[in-house]
Amino acid sequence: MIDKSQPVLKVEDLQVFYWSKRGPIRAVDGVSFTIKRNERFGFIGESGCGKTTTMMAVLRLIKPPGKIENGRVILDGQDVLKMEKEELRLTRWSKIALVPQGAMNSLNPIMRITDQIEDTIMTHDVGATREQARARILSLLDMVELPERVARMYPHELSGGMKQRACIAMATALEPQLIIADEPTSALDVVVQKAVMQTLIGVQERLGSSLILIGHDMGLTAQVLDRIGVMYAGKLVEVGEVQDIYKRPLHPYTQALIGSLPSLKEKKKGGGIPGLPPFLLNPPAGCVFHPRCQHAMDVCRQKVPVLREHRPNQLAACHLYEESNVPI
């Protein structure tokens, strides 16, 4: 049974490269984090910074030319990267489920929704008969506020929001301990975004599972999260509780991200962050952020900063806070 004393997911020093002709693209480069039971954790960072790759590595779904170079992924006490094939297959979805980034294209276009959920339930041999599985699917659809008839429908007959809900229903089919939702609302319009997000949170609370929520900006998702991890150029640069990250961000990149949030009061767009994220084929030496950082020092160009706790429960990878370079 579930051992509540240990974290649901512990990732250590994860490294994933995509091998191009000109060398490795360092999509994820030494990322470590822990997801606690019941927690809602958000990953945030510009698109292309390695969020999806990190999550796919957790599921061990990296395909060539990508390769997991290093690291440990401890899911519910077991290392996913060391599992046998069959063990891995059975672990997927029963312990960890995914609401994928491209939910629009993640449903098999020629299978009815019910069949796509049913085969998932049946293949994991949870002792359910087909009838029980079908009944369960109807209650799942109900839980994500989809009418019963959706079960008999094909993906192309559903709107974007409905597809997304169907994906959420599918993710919860086996009551996993951890659900990863990769930009679950980014392709939807704003009104639908809010409703889908509420459904997702509601379902997660009902199951009592943990949730990793990925987003490319600080928008919508923030209010519902417990903790946030900020990624930049394949590295985790800051981790902390939501209020801390918002009110007192440590890392200059986080500060810039928050500064670039559109402010409702001033009714104008944030300025954005000057410059572009680095090309991950040969990232800058030292701190990857230094070419865009206002506070860059000599040490930043030479030494890679380490993710360390600089305030209670708030970690950052930045030389500014090492040896009290700057008062906090």
């Binding site: 510009e46 698109s47 490319h216 991200l257 954005g272 572009l276 680095p278």
Partner: peptide, 11 residues
């Protein structure tokens, strides 16, 4: 588009 969403690898 704001610079925050631009990627260096986008063609």
């Amino acid at each position: 588009m704001a610079a925050t969403t631009a990627t260096s690898t986008e063609t």
